[in-house]
Design a protein around this nucleic acid. Structure first.
Lengths: 218, 218
DNA sequence: CCGTTCGGATAGTTCTACTCTCCATTCATG
DNA sequence: CATGAATGGAGAGTAGAACTATCCGAACGG
C-alpha cells in the first residue's frame, strides 16, 4: 500500500507519517522505483505502536525511537529492553541539588532496597526518581506520604512480579521484547489510571461530607 | 525580603519568579510603596511547592495554578481538592476514537469497578485513562498486560487507602488540602519510581541471562 | 495524456516555559 | 544627597518539541 492508505488505516496524517519516517520511528517502505515505495502490514502495526507509546504512554518522539531501536536490535536482551523502556518513560531525572535532604533520601532508598532484597542497580532511573521525590517531600514537610514507602514498595513488588512473568515467553524474541516495552510503558499508564480511580473511591468513603456525598469532584 | 533573596533562598531565577507572579502561581508580595513589594516565608514555601509540582510531579504551569487555586479556595473541600489535583496530573486524556475496542474497554472497567465496589464517578480522569489504555492494549494485542487488571487494582486499592488515611487530618484546612495535593502529585511520581525499581529487580531475577546477571541495563 | 499522488526536503507553525530587555522608580552606600 | 544597583511591571524574544505546509520533479492511473 502507499502512504495515503497507511494514513487512512491508522488515522495518522500523511504529514506525520513523513515526519516519523524522517525521525526513524517508522522504517522506510520497500522501494518499487527510484522515488516510489510500498508499505505493508508491519508498517500499520508499527505505526499503531508508535501512536500508543506517544499518545497513551506519554513518551516523547525521541524516547519512542530509542525504545523501537531496542526492539529492532537483535543484540538487545529482554532485560536490557526493559531498561531502555524505563529510560524512555523516566526521561525527566536531572542532577539533583545534592543537599542534606538528598543524602537522607538516598540512604532511605538504599535501606528500602536492602530490606526488600531487591536487585536494583545504582543507575536505575526509578531509583533516582525515588530519591528525588523523597528529598522533595522532606523539603516540603510531606513526611506523611514518605512514611508510606513500604506500602508503595509492597504494592509495586506485586505488580512488577506479575507483569514480568506475564510478559515472558520464550518464543519470538522481537514480539517478546515488544511486549516488554509495551508492558513497561502502558502498564505505567494503567497503574496511574487505577490509582486515580482508587483514590477517588477512598476519598469518597473517607473524606466526602456525608453519606449523600456523590458530588462530582471534577 | 525582596525578589533577589527569594530567588537565592529557593534557587529559582528572578525572571522565573516574575513569570510565576504573572501567571498567578505566586501571590504578589506585600506592597511597601507604589512600585516595591516585600515577600515572606509563605512565598518561600509556596515557591518550593510550585517547583516540586512542576519539576518532580511533572505538572504544567497551568495545571499547577489550578491546583494552587484549589488549595487557596476556602470553599474547596478535601475531596474536591483531590479531584482537582487528579485533573492536573491526568491532563492528557482526549476524546477517544470510540470504536469496538473502546466500548469493550469501557465495559471491562465498569465490571472492575462493580467487582471491587469502588465509588468512582463516570468523569474520573483515571477512569477515562484506564479505558484508553485498555482499548489501546486490545488494538495492539497486549492481552497479557490487560489481564493483570485485578492485580493492578488490588495494589492500587491498598496504596490509595493508606494514602488517603495518612493525609487526612481535621486540623488546619489549608495545610490539609495542600497535603492532599502533594500526596496525589508526588505520590504518583513515587509509585512510578518504585515500580521502575521493582521491575528491574523482577527482571534481573527472571529474565537476566544467568546468575552472574549484574549487567547495567541503562 | 494529464491531473493526482508520490517521496523527499525545507521551511513554517503552535505551544510551552521560560528569559531578556526596557524603563521609570526606589533603595542603599558613601 | 548623589549615584549606581536593584525593583516591579510589561512586552518581546527564545528554545525545544511536535507537528504541518509548501515545493519539486518523477511516477501512477484512468
Amino acid at each position: 500500500m502507499r502512504v495515503a492508505e497507511l494514513s487512512r488505516r491508522t488515522g495518522v496524517s500523511v504529514a506525520s507519517i513523513k515526519y516519523y519516517l524522517r525521525e526513524g520511528l517508522l522504517p522506510p517502505g520497500e522501494r518499487t522505483s527510484p522515488n516510489q515505495a510500498s508499505y505493508g502490514e508491519d508498517h500499520v502495526r508499527r505505526l499503531r505502536l508508535v501512536r500508543a507509546l506517544i499518545d497513551v504512554g506519554g513518551l516523547s518522539v525521541v524516547g519512542t525511537r530509542d525504545v523501537l531501536a531496542a526492539i529492532d536490535d537483535d543484540g538487545v536482551s529482554l532485560h536490557q529492553a526493559l531498561g531502555r523502556a524505563q529510560d524512555a518513560v523516566m526521561a525527566r531525572v536531572e542532577p539533583t541539588p545534592s543537599d542534606d535532604a538528598a543524602e537522607r533520601a538516598e540512604k532511605t532508598v538504599a535501606e528500602l532496597v536492602a530490606r526488600r532484597g531487591w536487585a536494583v542497580t545504582h543507575g536505575n532511573p526509578g531509583r533516582r526518581a525515588a530519591v528525588d521525590v523523597l528529598a522533595t517531600l522532606e523539603r516540603l514537610g510531606g513526611e506523611r506520604v514518605a512514611g508510606l514507602l513500604d506500602v508503595y514498595a509492597e504494592a509495586m513488588e506485586a505488580v512488577a512480579r506479575h507483569e514480568v512473568t506475564a510478559v515472558v515467553d520464550p518464543g519470538d524474541r522481537e514480539r517478546s521484547v515488544e511486549r516488554v516495552a509495551v508492558g513497561i510503558v502502558l502498564g505505567g499508564a494503567l497503574v496511574a489510571a487505577l490509582r486515580g480511580m482508587a483514590e477517588e473511591s477512598a476519598s469518597a468513603r473517607l473524606l466526602a461530607p456525608g453519606p449523600a456525598a456523590a458530588e462530582d469532584p471534577g
